[in-house]
Simulated scan of single mutants.
Amino acid sequence: MIESARSIVAVESRPRAPRRPRRRTGLTVGRVFGVPLHLNLSMLLLTLLVTVTYAEFARERLGLSPLGGYLIGLGFVVSLLGSVLLHELGHALTARRYGIGVRGITLELLGGYTEMDRDAPNPRVELLVALAGPAVSALLGGIAVAATLAIPDHTLAHQLALQLALSNVIVAVFNMLPGLPLDGGRALRAVLWRLTRDRHRATEVAGWVGRAVAVGTAGLVVLLTVQRVLVPLALPLMLLVAVTLWRGAGQSIRYARISRRVPLVDLGRLARPVFAVPTGTPLAEAQRRHAAQGPPGSAVLVVDGAGRPVALVDPAAADAVPVDRRPWLGVDAVARPLAALPTLPLGLDGERLMAAVQAHPGARYVVTAGEDVVGVLHIADLAQVLEPTRKMNR
């Protein structure tokens, strides 16, 4: 479902499958080859950390002034982010080449990710999209290695070329580790998908391998820090990379299990029935009628004088009204207009239902058949079908 290494030379990349829209916490800075580019606010922490760390290193190696060291550190951050951006463009442009829409590229604390409109249609496209990013990083690393060998030692240009070579090579190698959410995990999933003809099983297996990679990464980072190969300042950030890998692998496993159950979704069976009351009915009377005559679990629908549905009672708002006020408060006061609620046509299958819910997140959905309201879908009921072993708040 979803997938960057780091110290001062490590960055992660994770192409993401489509998911529920979310409010961004960063800035949209423009477009690159038509792909929207976003900067997450966590980039400020990365910029500060890498600038300070590399500035100290550059001053010691090159005898620069404090200001010169910080300027060089900042320049290295810009170069590093440029490398990450090119890595993500490899994913994005390859995906677009095969008809997969790209919503945008986001650069954040742990590198970057490419958000796509949908999954790859087959294992071959999945493999090509997954390998495109590491291929770009490997190419950049090769160019930087050649530049490092050609530039005299103990110079500023040599140090910058060396760090860019190391960062791009590490990004390419680290991302090719065979576990989700890394690019190598997506490549592994593509191979398993081709062999088993079961994308969901392939995703779940690659996710468990990704968890093993996360544990191995954490152990290796601690070992290298104890042996003073990594500076202590890099330890928290590298452990954060390992935690992010673990969480991403878990999300991939969960995504596979949910996706496997999507064909079981039947909107007609999931939708709760409705019980109609006329507009202006006192809340207490509406609740009395509903309790006496309404089907179990049904929602209270408010209809106008012609019998047309106009609103849906909000159970939480109704329960919040003191009992002694309910005879004097109209049911309309605790109802939401139907126009303000997302609607779902009754004939949707599981795939289209999931797409509609992701596009319009909500707690309840009005289910319609033509102009008639035939039921209400509670998102908790849908979640229970998709994840029957998970506890839900109803």
Rank of each mutant, 00 (worst) to 15 (best):
R31L: 03
V373W: 05
G216D: 12
P342G: 00
L180F: 13
D319E: 12
G101M: 08
I258L: 15
T196F: 12
R23K: 08
V373R: 14
P345Y: 15
A286T: 03
L264T: 07
T47D: 10
V102R: 04
A249G: 07
R325T: 08
V213S: 07
G297Y: 08
G280H: 08
A363C: 03
A333W: 00
L264F: 10
R20A: 09
I253D: 02
V277C: 02
P66H: 05
A95Y: 05
E351P: 01
F275M: 00
V323R: 15
G330P: 07
L110E: 00
I151Y: 03
S4H: 11
V125M: 04
L27W: 15
A356I: 03
A291W: 10
S298A: 12
G207I: 02
V366L: 10
A306G: 01
D372K: 13
D349Q: 06
D324P: 11
A161P: 03
P178I: 06
V321D: 00
D324C: 01
V35Y: 00
P345M: 13
L235C: 06
L180M: 14
H158M: 01
Q384R: 15
S137I: 11
T225C: 09
L312H: 03
S137T: 11
V191F: 09
G216T: 00
T148I: 09
G30S: 04
L353G: 08
Y255W: 14
N122V: 02
L37H: 03
T244D: 03
A355M: 13
L48A: 12
A355L: 08
G34Q: 03
S298N: 05
Q163V: 01
G34F: 11
L312R: 13
L382D: 10
G297I: 14
V221Y: 08
G30N: 02
L270H: 00
A299H: 15
Q384P: 00
L160A: 11
A190C: 07
L344Y: 00
D266K: 14
V205M: 10
L237S: 05
L46D: 00
R14D: 13
V221A: 01
L338T: 02
G375Q: 14
A383F: 12
A150N: 07
L182R: 05
P295T: 09
G112M: 03
L353M: 08
A17K: 08
R199P: 04
